[in-house]
Design a binder for these strands. Structure first.
Lengths: 216, 216
DNA sequence: AACTCAACATACTTAGTAGTATGTAGTCAA
DNA sequence: TTGACTACATACTACTAAGTATGTTGAGTT
C-alpha cells in the first residue's frame, strides 16, 4: 500500500479550481484574449500553478470542454432511456439541455469560441487527438437527440423527415442560449425560458388551428 | 468640377476585394488566427495595401460584418412588407435567411467568432463606436422577425407568447447553419435545407395528429 | 517635363503572451 | 534530520503579429 501515495485531496481540488477559473475567464474575456496570467490572477496564484497541472493553454480549454459536455450528458442521457413516448422524452431533453446551458453558463459560453479556434487548424499532434476526442463526444451527444427523433418518427408521435437536420436545428437553437441569456436575480425564470424554448421546438411558432388542411 | 477627382473605379474595387479576401480568411482560419499578412497573401499583395484602406484589423472585421448584414437585409427586409399573412411571411423570411447563410457562407462564418471577441471588451473608442453600430444593425434585423411574429400572433395565424424568445430561437437555429453546413457540388440542395429548416421552425418536430386535444 | 498624389511595397519597431527554467517552502517517510 | 518530492512562485526567453515609417511606381495635371 505504500507504492502509490494516498491520493491527497488538495491537488485534485486545485486542478478543478483552475478549470472553473478558466471557464469564468473564457466567458468574460473570450478564449483567445484570456491569458494564462488572467486565469492565475483569478485564483490569486501565478502561472506556475497553472502550468504545474496543465501542459498548455489548449489543455485547459479541453478540460473546460469536457466538463461542459459532462454536465450536458448528466442532464440529458438519463431521459433517453425513460419509459416514455419519444415525443415526451425529446421535450424533456430540450428542456434539460436549455437548463444546463443556463446553470453552467460560464462553461458553455467559454467553449463556443474556443472550439471554433481549434476547429480550423489543430497545430500539434496532441491537440489533434484531444480535438478528435471532443468531436466524438459532441457527435455522441447529438446522437442522443437523433436516436429519440428516429424512434419518435418511427412511432408516429414525432415528425422529422430529415433527422440529422432536425437535430441540428434543435441543438443550434438551444446552444444559442449562452449568446443572449444573462443571469438575473430571480431563480425560476430559467425554467420558464427552458420550457418555452422546448415548446417552440416541439410545436413551432405557427398557430395550430389554421392550416389544418385545405378544406375550402 | 476639378476640386474632387473623378472617382476612379479601381480603389473601390480594391477595397471590396480586401473585404472579400478577409471574409474567406476569417472563415478558414478564424478571425484571431488570421493575420493581416494572410489577407494580403490571399490577394497576392502585402500589408501595405491592406493598411492603405483600413486603419486596423478590427476595421476590416467591421467591414465584413456590415457586408454580411447587408446580404441579410436585402434578402429578408422585402418580405416583411409583402401583402401576405404573417405566417407565410415568417416562413419565407426563415427560408431566405437560411439561404443567405449558405450562399454567403464565408461572410457569415467569419463573423460569428469575431463578434464574440469584440463583445467582451471593445478596447479603443473607435471600436466601441463601430461595435455599437453593428449591434444596432443586428437589433434592427431581429426586429424584423419580432415585428412579423407580433403581427401574426395578433392576427392569430402565429402563436408566440414570448416574442423576443421566439425570435431568438429562430435566429439561433438558422445562424447555426455556418457551423455545420459545408457546400457541395449540387446547387439546389441548399434550397431543400432552407425549406426543411423553415418548416421545422414553423411547425416543430412534434407530429400533428397526436396531442390535438385531451379527447379520451 | 517637372510636380503631385494615390496606391501600393518594403523594412522596421514593439508589445503582449505562451511556454520554460529555475528557485523555494512545506510535508512525509525512514 | 535529512533526503526527496510535491506544489507551487519567480524570472526569463522567444516568438508572433499588429501597427508604423518610409520608399517606389505609375498615372494624371499643367
Amino acid at each position: 500500500m505504500n507504492e502509490v501515495s494516498a491520493t491527497p485531496a488538495a491537488p485534485t481540488e486545485s486542478r478543478a479550481e483552475i478549470v472553473t477559473a478558466a471557464a469564468t475567464c473564457f466567458m468574460r474575456r473570450g478564449y483567445d484574449k484570456t491569458t494564462i496570467d488572467d486565469i492565475a490572477d483569478a485564483l490569486g496564484a501565478t502561472k506556475g500553478r497553472v502550468y504545474h497541472y496543465f501542459r498548455s493553454k489548449s489543455a485547459i480549454f479541453f478540460a473546460v470542454y469536457r466538463e461542459a459536455m459532462r454536465y450536458c450528458f448528466e442532464a440529458v442521457e438519463p431521459i433517453v432511456a425513460m419509459p416514455l413516448p419519444a415525443r415526451e422524452r425529446l421535450h424533456r431533453m430540450c428542456q434539460a439541455h436549455a437548463m444546463v446551458m443556463m446553470t453552467t453558463l460560464s462553461f458553455q459560453r467559454g467553449i463556443k469560441q474556443g472550439l471554433e479556434i481549434y476547429m480550423r487548424g489543430p497545430t500539434t499532434e496532441a491537440e489533434r487527438e484531444s480535438f478528435a476526442e471532443l468531436q466524438a463526444l459532441r457527435d455522441r451527444y447529438e446522437g442522443l437527440f437523433r436516436k429519440v427523433l428516429a424512434e419518435g418518427t418511427a412511432a408516429g408521435d414525432l415528425h422529422a423527415p430529415d433527422i440529422p437536420l432536425a437535430g441540428r436545428v434543435i441543438l443550434s437553437a438551444l446552444n444559442g442560449l449562452p449568446d443572449w441569456y444573462r443571469p438575473r436575480g430571480d431563480g425560476d425564470r430559467i425554467e420558464a425560458i427552458a420550457a418555452d424554448m422546448a415548446a417552440i421546438l416541439m410545436s413551432g411558432v405557427a398557430a395550430r388551428d389554421t392550416g389544418t388542411g385545405p378544406q375550402a
